[in-house]
């Protein structure tokens, strides 16, 4: 019996392939030369999709991570863009001219929205698709098995590394190596990193053998115990969305959007 793994929320039933296509199409449109209004609509659409997928909390965290980059890109243009319509000016010394211009403010808003839209596009893939879902999507598109392994294992490697670090630290604590001073803790952190690093290097050969035994490189159909529900509508949508994105990009370059 196969277990269905689709997520929760309004659009939770979407197949991982559909989410990846939505995300990639969104990223392509996000990088097109859109107007401020079009960028705001695009960003709100992305946020709406993520909220509908039940990812409100993680969307908030993502926005908190993106806000400094978006804010900084706006500030840079707001104070140093070489525009014509100057609102305020400050020349600390000759050759250095900080100026708030209308053009700079406009360009800054465009760049900040581009950062937010790009990040939201990436989030449409990363927040809605698990590593297993991504493996399914990439496998269905018949990407090289090595590439799929590398991407999915790398997504999982962070938590695996965290587990290794926890085990190593526990053993160091058990041996009385933990110190209550800052310097002692830094030394312990370096020692932990060295131990984990050596461990990973020493076992790479066994990991390679394990991959070979799992026939990781053999092409062809793979059967997973967990699978994802798909539908004819989604299959059609996966063709329509990229075409729509290309259409929007052409309109943007034509100056319509």
């Amino acid at each position: 019996m196969k277990l269905l793994e689709n997520g929760n929320g309004l659009w939770g039933g979407l197949h991982p392939q559909t989410w990846v296509v939505i995300g990639l199409s969104f990223i392509v449109v996000a990088l097109a030369p859109l107007s401020i209004c079009a960028r705001i609509i695009l960003w709100l659409t992305g946020c709406g999709l993520l909220l509908g997928a039940g990812q409100g909390r993680r969307l908030l965290l993502l926005l908190l991570a993106l806000a400094p980059v978006a804010g900084m890109s706006f500030l840079i243009q707001a104070v140093s863009f070489n525009g014509m319509r100057v609102l305020a000016q400050w020349q600390p010394f000759a050759g250095l001219n900080f100026a708030v211009t209308l053009e700079g403010l406009h360009f800054g808003v465009l760049l900040a929205l581009q950062v937010l839209c790009f990040g939201t596009g990436c989030a449409l893939i990363s927040l809605t698709t698990t590593a297993a879902g991504l493996r399914t999507a990439l496998g269905k598109w018949r990407l090289p098995p090595r590439l799929i392994y590398l991407i999915v294992a790398s997504l999982n490697a962070l938590s695996q590394l965290q587990r290794y670090v926890a085990i190593t630290r526990e053993s160091e604590r058990a041996r009385g190596l933990e110190r209550r001073t800052l310097g002692g803790n830094v030394r312990l952190a370096v020692k932990t990193a060295t131990t984990v690093f050596t461990l990973v290097l020493l076992e790479h050969e066994d990991r390679g053998k394990s991959l070979a035994q799992r026939r990781v490189e053999m092409p062809g159909h793979r059967t997973f115990l967990r699978t994802y529900a798909d539908s004819r509508g989604q299959k059609v949508a996966r063709w329509i969305l990229p075409a729509l994105a290309i259409g929007l990009v052409l309109l943007a370059y034509g100056g319509v959007l």
């Binding site: 090289p144 090595r146 590439l147 392994y149 590398l150 294992a153 790398s154 999982n156 490697a157 962070l158 695996q160 590394l161 690093f197 990973v200 290097l201 790479h204 050969e205 990991r207 390679g208 053998k209 394990s210 991959l211 070979a212 990781v216 490189e217």
Partner: peptide, 18 residues
């Protein structure tokens, strides 16, 4: 992708995490 042995492939995810 195919130019390295599987033992090196197995090392890469941890290098990525580092």
């Amino acid at each position: 992708l195919q130019r390295i042995p599987l033992s090196a492939v197995a090392l890469i995810p941890f290098a990525v995490a580092f």
